[in-house]
Design a binder for these strands. Structure first.
Lengths: 345, 345
DNA sequence: AATCATTTCCAAAGCGCTTTGGACATCTTT
DNA sequence: AAAGATGTCCAAAGCGCTTTGGAAATGATT
């Protein structure tokens, strides 16, 4: 059933039917009711492509998900981020189109999506510190919102980010307060902006207390469970083993815990662990008694808000690009405790 | 840059330019080269909506992701499934459109997507045993492929599934061979078809050995980490605690492990655990020395294959609907061992 | 040289919608 | 009663592409 048929069916013109359905005032309320009812009865849905052609808007938002080539890994936070964003889109009649792209190929995909006219706006995922995509999208004139930031980009652009630096600074401070001095950072890939900010926060806190940053305690890789396990195994078995770990992802923290417990040690007593927790739905840290002490920030909520920002940006392209900095909560759980006193301290 | 401008630029008609770009034979190779070069130079991309209108094809596939209302949970396997499917799509010039929908609302979304003409085909996720969506999609005449099956649907339809019954039957057999008799099943929601099949396999194996199925050992819920932890805590603290657990997801198995180790027990020695492992990229079980004994089946590979099946189905709608049953590997890891002998046996 | 087949190109229709620029009643106002 | 205002509807153009049904030019055949 298309518009023409529906109009013929009703003995009206396409114009009137179209206007009736789209809420234009110049149509008799009685006719409008008749039209709406008929549309419903015939299960009529305007063809997106035709509508898009006519209006010039795609009513779709593009998400380009970077995929690590080496590990064939999709960052597990995307699921929840997209769930949040999807809520916003469907409430506003937008579709979401997804492209999974190997690391580094993202630019071409953005160009394609825009060139084809498949989307009205884009969300940029996984920004690197000096991300070239931002300048490019500005050039292209596509509305976009970055989830995260790109430190070295100075021109204003729309972003939504968690205050990663502060979160990890606070977490480090917390560990220092507990007496820890040998604190290892099990970070994500530091070419990613959020990871470098976390590291900055960590180093800042240490330096402020006069603790020198030990390069042997700095680790940066893709955040798998295995990485957490392997790294902590190596560190714990080394001389000058850390007494505390600061971990960039819940999943990696699971591996960290495994390494610790495998050695007969207990989190919170022998070794302290703080992890960042994106509040993934299937991996709740526990509301009542959190397993991990964690810097918490719901990535789903971030998705919701980023999507809302983008839709507003599409509606008002000439407003200055909005920014939003979310603060992470430092939630105390069972994985931290005072540093065990030892002669090497 | 659109076709008309490009054609004017070249001093050719739209027809010729269109044909040149789409590989039709009735155009001089010299002109074609000229056209292709100009298109490249001007960064021309045909407008999808216009192309779609003209051809009647959307060049997009719809994925409707069910989202549990109660837990606001997105099944973590979707990320990897979609990554697999996305590979196939992008190789074939298809886009992927994603809708996240609350449980039970999926039908409307399918109808919408199809009615709007936004997609050429659909992947059905998370089929329930008597899933009404299949009949509906058949009615609508949309090409679709089900990831999983719907037991009570008798009409032929296209699906790709893991042999869940057999996988869990073999896993149960394996535990029985090790001497376990008190084996608990920590299953997913059994309204989901895959979970009911896993249960069937489990029960079949027990019954074949004359072990009666103990209802207290049967658990069915959404597969969170917390669920695994809570359930196993309760079971281990009860009389007649199980000596082995059969778990439906890696994430739940993490919770199971936590409960076990918290009690000072060790997996593989005191308690045996087998889990299903979807080979999620960020949660590798370990190639060399797997932590868990597991029934393994790559959900990413499933995504790749399901997408391929769908594209073929779109190309040849009149062929009988294809089916594919993937077998899971039973991989032995460190989480299983002989049942501890005890007087209650 | 005339005819026919081939090659190479084009004008125009059509996909299903929105939107512009009226047309025609009907109702007020003077 | 004429003129304007208002309410309600419509015909047709246009969005950017594909595709049909030729037309013109070229080459091969008689």
């Amino acid at each position: 059933m298309n518009l023409r048929e529906l109009a013929q069916n009703l003995g009206l013109s396409q114009t009137t039917v179209s206007r009736a359905l789209n809420g234009y005032p110049e149509v008799n309320e009685a006719t409008r009711a008749r039209v709406v009812q008929a549309a419903e009865q015939h299960n009529y849905r305007p063809n997106t492509r035709a509508k898009g052609l006519a209006t010039g808007r795609a009513m779709a938002i593009g998400h380009v998900i970077p995929m690590s080539k080496q590990h064939e890994m999709v960052n597990p936070v995307f699921g929840d981020f997209i769930a949040g964003a999807g809520e916003t889109y469907s409430r506003n009649g937008y579709d979401m189109v997804l492209s999974l792209v190997e690391d580094g190929q993202e630019e071409k995909t953005y160009r394609d999506l825009r060139g084809k006219g498949a989307v009205d706006g884009l969300i940029v995922h996984g920004p690197k510190s000096g991300d070239a995509r931002i300048a490019m999208l500005d050039d292209l004139g596509v509305p976009f919102v970055v989830h995260g930031r790109a430190s070295s980009v100075t021109t204003p652009y729309a972003w939504l980010d968690v205050n990663n630096r502060k979160a990890f600074q606070r977490a480090t401070d917390f560990l220092l307060d507990l007496g820890h001095r040998r604190i290892a950072l099990i970070n994500g890939l530091e070419e990613l902006d959020f990871a470098s900010r976390r590291r900055a926060g960590y180093e800042e806190a240490l330096t402020a207390r006069g603790v020198t940053v030990n390069p042997a305690y700095l680790h940066s890789e893709e955040m798998t469970e295995r990485y957490g396990y392997d790294t902590v195994c190596r560190l714990l078995d080394s001389d000058a083993a850390p007494t505390a770990f600061l971990v960039s992802s819940m999943i990696t923290a699971i591996g960290v815990r495994r390494a610790i417990e495998e050695r007969g040690l207990r989190m919170g007593r022998d070794i302290s662990v703080i992890t960042h927790d994106d509040a993934l739905s299937y991996f709740k840290n526990g509301e009542d008694a959190p397993i991990f002490t964690a810097t918490c920030s719901s990535v789903r909520e971030a998705g919701r808000q980023a999507a809302k920002m983008l839709l507003e940006r599409i509606a008002h392209p000439h407003l200055p690009p909005p920014n939003r900095l979310l603060e992470a909560q430092l939630v105390v759980g069972g994985s931290t405790g005072p540093a065990p006193t030892s002669r090497t301290d």
